[in-house]
Every structure is written in C-alpha cells, then in structure tokens.
Design a protein around this nucleic acid. Sequence first.
DNA 1: ACCGCACCCTGAGCGC
DNA 2: TGCGCTCAGGGTGCGG
Length: 291
Amino acid sequence: MPELPEVETTRRSIAPHLVGRTIRAVTTTKASYFFLTPPRELERRLTGRRVLALVRRGKYLLLELDDGARVLLHLGMTGQLFTASARSVRLLNATRSGALLPEAQSAFEPDVHTHLVLSFDDDGERVLFRDVRKFGKVQWLAKDARDARLSKLGVDALEATGALLYEKTRGRKAAIKTFLLDQAVLAGVGNIYADEALFRAGIRPTRAARSLTKPQCEKLARETVAVLMRSIETGGSSISDYVSADGSDGGYQHERKVYARTGEACSVCGSVIKRVVLGQRSTHYCPSCQK
DNA sequence: ACCGCACCCTGAGCGC
DNA sequence: TGCGCTCAGGGTGCGG
C-alpha cells in the first residue's frame, strides 16, 4: 500500500501527536513476524521514553527516542498509522463498513489487527498501528545500532537524478519497472509511482534498464520526483487501505494515469491501457505513449 | 552482482 | 450461499 508519498503524508500528519510526548503505556498483539522485536520487549523498551523526532527513510519511518534508541516502522502493504480520534471506513473491515457505514463516525476500537497502541502522558491522543496482512514491521534499534534494512537503502527517491539512474542502470538487463522498485537504488518508489513515473517519462516499463539513454534517464528522474511530490501535495493515494493520521483519504488516486486503469482509455491519446506482470507485480502502461 | 521466483498473511471480488 | 480462484501501494531469502 504505502509508498513514499503515503509514508511522508503519514509522517507529517502523525508527527505532531508523537514528537515531544512521553510514552506512558504500550499495548501489543501476540508475537508474529510483524514484531522484529518481541512485543513484550518492545513494551518494556518504549514505556517512559520521550519521542524526539519522527523521520522517514524511503518507505521506513524512524521514531527517535530520548535515550538514543530508535523505533523502525514499516507499513508494508496494509499498514495504517493513525490517532485514536481518526474516522474512516478504511479502518473497518470492508464487509463491516458496507453493512455499518455510520460506524465510521464513532471511535475506532482496537481490533485483532491493531498490533501497537501508544498512550501518552499529558492529554496526548493515543497513536495506533494497524496492519491486516502483517507485512508491516516494527523494530526497536539500540542507540548507535546500525540496521541492515536501513543501510542497504539507496538514495531517497525525492533526490533522484538522471546521473544516478544512468550510472545504476548500466549493465542491468532487468525491466526498467523492476529496476525502479529496487530499494537499494532508489528508496521509496513502489508499484503505483513506478508505473506513473514511466508513463510521464514516455518509457515502456518492459524495456531493459540498460537500454535507457542518458536523456531518458534524466527525464525519468525528473518525472519520478515530480510524481512523488505531486502525490505528497494531494495527500498520497488512498486506493484500499491508506489513511493519514486523522483517517482522511489522500487525493492522488484520482490523478493516476495508468495504475489500475487496465482496459481504460489513455487520457492523453485514447489508446487502451495495458497490463503485464513484471517481477510478480502488476504493471500498467499506454502502448502508444510509452516506447 | 544480478535475476526470477516462492513465500510471508488476510480479505475482497469474481465466476460458477 | 458457498467454494475456489485471483488479486492487492511490500520485502526477504533462496537457488541458478
């Protein structure tokens, strides 16, 4: 679900509820691979700590604590990070939301998918981390600990440059779409924005990465940054699960040109948008605009 | 070093 | 209604 724009929108909206506050209580669900740090240990490590900052690296969020430790968060595919007063039908199971729409107007009650709840001193609102599929992650990192997941990340996608793409694509015969999803090259691009960036750059996603010319790499870098920034401006994409801290939807799903538009007419040329599978991910493109 | 694939997990939506 | 199948903004780990 969440790619760089959704993670950044989440960061901006949830930070005011975390930064400067002291964690009074932590509740968790039972151990699962969602917890890279065992839930009981997490409770012990976090309780009493004050949050100094919330930063983003690619699709990861890092909570910086007053004892020098950090908490690594990843939203996976269905992760939702929000406050106790958030209201959204996306916070309910769809079957329930269909039957009980008005329920979205009442307070969210933590359910079996709500793996982490932080309560704060003073009158801070509780912050909840819910993740139905549990592809998300939470991990406590000791002071000065270097984390393998973070250290293998490439340049943040908002800093993408043509020179970098040109250099990194040399010798890479994988499809350019697959290449864009490689977090070791550009951190933050996911399935939606890879497709959208390639559309804006006029590049066919199936092309071998190494076949891109220097000018094409320049164009792709510019369009990648542009699409990510535009999505952040609109609050990210809410296609199935994503909500910001207060439960509100993003707006970028309304601006998509190709992602999940298979069979529809291209908004530029009218051709039928095609779908292929690359690296086990659905890939959408306009056969006439993208060469 | 790089590539493709299986797999982790839950739920929605579809055809029959 | 229910079953079986496919699909979903992610990442890791394994062979070749």
